[in-house]
Each structure stands twice: as structure tokens, then as C-alpha cells.
């Protein structure tokens, strides 16, 4: 067991856990931030995607001991009022079916747009292909990302 001071969604949080505990389970079990989902545990599905700094990472593969003071953003902290352009686009397109993978999809998409505000369809496909949607909402995800890109550029 060891104590870690994490910087999550702009707030500091202290946890006392085994250093090998993946960030995913620290978020879900210890901090009750359950928006980040468990899907596979081996970085194959993307349901657990969060941001460390500006980059999207699979939180199931990040031991809590390796995070340090880097800022972590989860779906709960992506925006204050649920109005990030990607969240708005997701609601406007009504992307989801079961919805379980969508937090990961949104975190992946918002990191993409942060680093590449106007991605091509090929770039969207390449970036999003690590996130599985079992319900098959891929065409809507693509549409929502395009819409979010437009929203960001017009705002």
C-alpha cells in the first residue's frame, strides 16, 4: 500500500492503494468516478479511456504509481456542465444505444479534436478504431465527431 496524491478533474484526490493498481480501478472503486468503464482490462476495447494531459490513454493499463502529478481528466470532468462540444454533438446526434462504451468514445474523440481540430474521415477512423462499440454506432460516432469539429471551429 502507498499513498498517492492525484490531480483528477482539476481537484486533488488522495488514495491509499497497492502501487500496481490500474488507474481504472482507482477511479471506479476508490474515487467512485464510475463513468470510466471496464471493458476488457487489456487495452483492446477503449471503454476505460481517460486523458492524461492532452492525450487519450487506456486507464486499465496505467498503474497508479506511474501517474505522478500529471493532470487526469475523466468523463465526469470533461466539462463543467456536460456541454463540451463533443458531448453536445453526441446528444444532438443521439449516438448511443446501450451507451456503455460511449464515455470512452467521447474521451478518445475529444483528445483527437484537441490535437487535430479538423480531422479527415480517415484520421477519425484510424483514431477511433481502438474503441469497440458492440451496438454498432460507428456511423453516428463519425457524424458526431464531424459535428463537434464544426461546433469547436464556430465557437
Amino acid at each position: 500500500m502507498a499513498t498517492y496524491n492525484l490531480n483528477i478533474n482539476g481537484k486533488s484526490a488522495q488514495v491509499d492503494v497497492d502501487p500496481a493498481t490500474p488507474l481504472l480501478w482507482v477511479l471506479r472503486d476508490h474515487l467512485k468516478l464510475v463513468g470510466t468503464k471496464y471493458g476488457c482490462g487489456i487495452a483492446q476495447c477503449g471503454a476505460c479511456t481517460v486523458h492524461i494531459g492532452d492525450g487519450a490513454v487506456r486507464s486499465c493499463q496505467i498503474p497508479v504509481s506511474s501517474v505522478g502529478e500529471q493532470p487526469i481528466t475523466t468523463i465526469e470532468g470533461l466539462s463543467e456542465n456536460g456541454d463540451h462540444p463533443v458531448q453536445q454533438a453526441w446528444m444532438e446526434v443521439d449516438v448511443y444505444q446501450c451507451g456503455y462504451c460511449q464515455a470512452g468514445q467521447i474521451m478518445q474523440a475529444s483528445a483527437l479534436l484537441k490535437n487535430n481540430p479538423n480531422p479527415s474521415d480517415e484520421e477519425i477512423e484510424a483514431t477511433m478504431s481502438g474503441n469497440i462499440c458492440r451496438c454498432g454506432t460507428y456511423t453516428r460516432i463519425r457524424k458526431a465527431i464531424r459535428l463537434a469539429a464544426e461546433k469547436s471551429q464556430n465557437s
Binding site: V34, G35, T36, I75, Q87, W90, M91, D94, Y100
Partner: peptide
């Protein structure tokens, strides 16, 4: 979808 706003903000919804 009536659960849309909860889905996009990661609110607790699922059994897990």
C-alpha cells in the same frame, strides 16, 4: 434518449 445527458457525462447508470 432520456438517459443521453447521463451517458455523456458518465453518471452511474449500469449494474457495474
Amino acid at each position: 434518449n432520456v438517459d443521453g445527458p447521463k451517458i455523456v457525462t458518465g453518471q452511474p447508470l449500469y449494474g457495474l
